[in-house]
Amino acid sequence: MKEGRVSFDPAVLVLEDGTRYSGRAYGARGRTLGEVVFATGMTGYQETLTDPSYAGQIVVMTAPHIGNTGVNDEDTESSRIWVSGFVVRDPSRVVSNFRATGSLDDQLVTEAVVGISGIDTRAVTRRLRDAGSMRGGVFSGADAALDADAQLEIVRAAGQMAGQNLSSQVSTVDGYVVAATTASIGRLAVLDLGVKTSTINYLAERGFDVHVMPQSVSITELLAIDPVAVFYSNGPGDPAASDGHVSLLQEVLKKGLPFFGICFGNQLLGRALGYGTYKLPFGHRGINQPVVDVATGRTEITSHNHGFAVDAPIGVISDSPAGFGRVEVSHVNLNDNVVEGLNALDIPAFSVQYHPEAAAGPHDANYLFDRFRDLVLKSKDSK
């Protein structure tokens, strides 16, 4: 067992509506700003922290005890922690897990992530459920002593998530290849909009030689690897601010290449097909979202992290406004009837809004990687 830190330094979480929550400093000291959102997972906090989709967000964990299993080198989903800030109720004082290589608090300090503990995260969650996700700031160290009005002014001066294109901040600068771990079925072009390690591993296990490409790649550069298919990853930001990625995807669809998109990739497929997107009041985040597969009627418990959604008609087959044929909404959220998946009927393309690659689970939707493999093999056989 490893001992964690115990902090008595003051800290405060300030929301843009003026609501304040006083607690103790957790992780690095200082000031951080971002969109305050809540995540409902009771496990997998290390996956949440290292998921690039959380860039620009201060994450409130609804589970009360965080840090019990510490951190390790196996459960990271990227090369660093991406959350702007971290809010917990009771950080573990003791790290107890045979895989742990350190404490979560130490890792937050090392990576300069400002957090707060010792506040009623239930109250914060209820506030966000009532008022919606909003800008906020965590202030500790010298910044905790700032005047309350000054802290609120700093929060309200921060940028909104709507309208932000964050792909360039999280995408790889240089492309790289992860070889298939079973018999290869061809090269897969993965547009890195904030891709997770688990996604790459699951694709490699399905026989793809995974070519991870920067978000700035051109259609010429993408086609130069002669891909059998294209994949758009998860990622942060507003899909309405990603016109370049939409145009690139439309070129891919015109070429008839099979396509699969996850999360942000689902929103961009929606836009490429001609549908709009909109911001959800407080988004879907956590690992317990019930989603129904419209074709089978099967309900899956799924992992989510998105604040935007596709505006497409549910329960009917519609014509793609962008001219790509018939489209159906394949999956629907049972909590609020939000579109959770798209399936193009006249071209080989589909997507889901949630995370079938969630390493911490649930794994109900992992079959989607097999469905993608089958789609690619069917497309190859038809040529």
Rank of each mutant, 00 (worst) to 15 (best):
A142D: 13
A131Y: 09
V138M: 11
L128V: 09
V124G: 04
R122Y: 10
D130E: 14
D120V: 08
T121S: 03
A123K: 11
R129Y: 02
T125F: 05
A148R: 13
G137P: 00
R122L: 11
D143N: 01
A150G: 10
G137M: 10
G118C: 06
S133V: 09
R135C: 08
G132Q: 08
V124H: 04
A150L: 13
R122G: 10
G118N: 14
L146I: 00
D149W: 01
G136E: 12
S133C: 09
D143E: 12
Q151C: 13
R135S: 05
G132S: 14
I119G: 11
V138R: 02
V138I: 15
T125M: 15
R135T: 03
A142E: 15
A142W: 06
G137V: 01
R129E: 15
A142K: 08
T121P: 11
A131F: 11
S133Q: 11
A145K: 00
S140C: 05
L146M: 08
D143Q: 02
R122F: 13
L152Q: 03
D149F: 00
R127T: 13
R135Q: 10
G141H: 04
D130R: 06
D147R: 14
M134T: 12
T125N: 07
G141C: 06
Q151N: 14
G118A: 11
T125R: 14
I119C: 07
F139G: 01
R129I: 06
V124R: 10
A144S: 14
T121K: 10
L128G: 06
